[in-house]
Design a binder for these strands. Structure first.
Ligand SMILES: [Mn+2]
Ligand SMILES: [Mn+2]
Ligand SMILES: [Zn+2]
Ligand SMILES: [Zn+2]
Lengths: 138, 138
DNA sequence: AAGCATATCCGCAGGACTTGCTAGTTCGCA
DNA sequence: TGCGAACTAGCAAGTCCTGCGGATATGCTT
């Protein structure tokens, strides 16, 4: 995702208006590698701007996703997570604390595949489940 | 997933009762590689047994999953899919027709990983998106 | 074969997450 | 500064799934 200042320009360039609510979300998302959910962002936004509505958070996240500034990722059931890192990468989910970390997998595009007769893949996504470094104590 | 006859025994062995509704679902799921949803199964079940409730379908799917006879898989948003193939495998999703096919990936457990400092993976799941053989794209 | 204790079934209410709707407000350009 | 388009906030509604409770069927006993 681009910087808040660049997003301001990008929104104006598309005829979208730049409101305080949107700018706040630009800041909360910029360089955020926590893979937050809409609720998480809503809680953070509320502490800085009481009165902002959850609906507006969802709307802005939808807009940013449509503009390619965010990816939306889901892990089984539960709410969607929003990812300002739109580079090609994968995820590791800690089943203990829920932390989600970015993973870069070498050769993910050259995975040897059986049973895919005729299937033409456009993308592959890999999700690791396990325990993260801080939860690894057994 | 084991055969309907074996599941009858397995349910009895656990003190679970074997009802016509459950036996119907055993049959609908056995050797089913379509990755059906609860709604899909409910529709099929209703045609053979009008009056069966969606609640019972969910309940039986939950029981079978708890017994390790089914896996539950999800792809982004949308309902869960149930998979009688509990062997270690992955999935290819056709973005055109929605078909879900099983994929066996060589060396999925030895994927070279960067950025996973200290993370201990228990499992990895890979989902390919693209177009299936019959939906061959331009 | 009949009875009994208990697991199951089904319908409905409710929860989690997300999107639709709309009146009133705010933004951005002239 | 003023206007029209876009936005916000609140609530309703949609989707998928689970909790609950009375009526019922199952499996075992006698
Ligand atoms: Mn990420
Ligand atoms: Mn499968
Ligand atoms: Zn952890
Ligand atoms: Zn297809």
């Amino acid at each position: 995702m681009r910087s808040p200042a660049q997003l301001v320009d990008a929104f104006r360039a598309q005829g979208l208006k730049v409101t305080p609510q949107r700018q706040l979300l630009f800041r909360l998302l910029h360089d955020n590698d926590r893979h937050p959910t809409a609720d998480t962002l809503y809680a953070q936004a509320t502490s800085e701007m009481p009165g902002i509505s959850l609906r507006t958070v969802y709307q802005t996240l939808t807009d940013l996703t449509a503009m390619g500034e965010l990816d939306q990722v889901t892990f089984g059931s539960g709410p969607a997570h929003f990812d300002p890192n739109v580079a090609d990468h994968h995820h590791a989910v800690c089943d203990v604390c829920g932390a989600i970390t970015d993973v870069y997998v070498d050769g993910a595009d050259q995975l040897a595949i059986d049973g895919l007769a005729g299937f033409r893949p456009d993308s592959a996504s890999i999700v690791f489940h396990g325990s993260c470094a801080s939860c690894a104590r057994t």
